[in-house]
Amino acid sequence: MKTHNPDTEKTSNYDHLEKMSTSELLSNINKEDKSVAESVQKVLPEIEKLVDAIVPKLENGGRLFYIGAGTSGRLGVLDASECPPTFGVSAGIVIGLIAGGDTALRNAVENAEDATQQAWKDLREYDISENDVLIGIAASGTTPYVIGGIEKARAEKIITGSITCSMNSPLGKASEYAIEVPTGPEFVTGSTRMKAGTAQKMVLNMISTSVMIKLGRIKGNKMVDMQLSNSKLVGRGTRMIMEELGIDEKKAAELLMEHKSVRKVISAYNSEQ
Rank of each mutant, 00 (worst) to 15 (best):
K2V: 03
T3W: 08
T3Y: 14
H4G: 11
N5V: 15
E9C: 04
K10I: 00
K10D: 14
H16W: 04
H16S: 15
L17V: 13
K19E: 13
M20C: 02
T22G: 00
T22C: 08
S23P: 07
E24N: 12
L25Q: 09
L26Q: 00
N28W: 00
K31P: 09
K31A: 02
K31I: 09
K31W: 12
E32N: 12
V36N: 10
S39V: 13
V40P: 06
Q41A: 14
V43Q: 10
L44G: 05
L44T: 14
I47T: 02
A53I: 00
V55Q: 07
K57L: 11
R63M: 08
I67H: 03
I67C: 00
I67M: 04
I67Y: 01
S72L: 08
R74A: 02
R74I: 05
V77G: 00
L78D: 04
A80W: 01
A80R: 08
C83E: 10
T86N: 04
F87T: 04
F87K: 02
G96V: 13
L97Y: 11
I98M: 01
I98G: 04
A99N: 08
G101V: 13
D102Y: 06
T103Q: 15
V109W: 12
V109S: 06
Q118D: 15
D122G: 08
L123I: 08
R124Q: 11
R124D: 10
E125G: 07
Y126R: 13
E130Q: 13
E130G: 01
D132R: 06
V133E: 12
I135R: 05
A138G: 06
A139P: 06
G141A: 04
T143L: 09
I150F: 10
I150E: 12
A153K: 09
R154T: 05
R154P: 03
A155Y: 01
K157N: 15
I158T: 11
I159W: 02
G161H: 02
M167Q: 10
N168I: 00
N168W: 04
K173Q: 12
A174K: 09
P182K: 00
T183P: 05
G184V: 00
E186F: 08
K195N: 13
G197P: 07
S210A: 15
I213V: 15
K214I: 04
I218Y: 06
I218W: 04
I218E: 09
M223G: 10
V224Q: 08
D225Y: 13
M226D: 10
M226N: 06
S229P: 05
S231V: 05
L233W: 08
G235E: 13
G237M: 00
M240A: 03
M242R: 07
E243P: 01
E243Y: 02
E243W: 02
E244W: 00
E244Q: 11
G246F: 05
G246M: 09
I247T: 10
K250C: 09
K250M: 12
E254P: 07
L256W: 08
M257G: 14
K260L: 11
V262I: 15
K264F: 01
K264S: 14
N270E: 13
N270V: 07
S271Y: 02
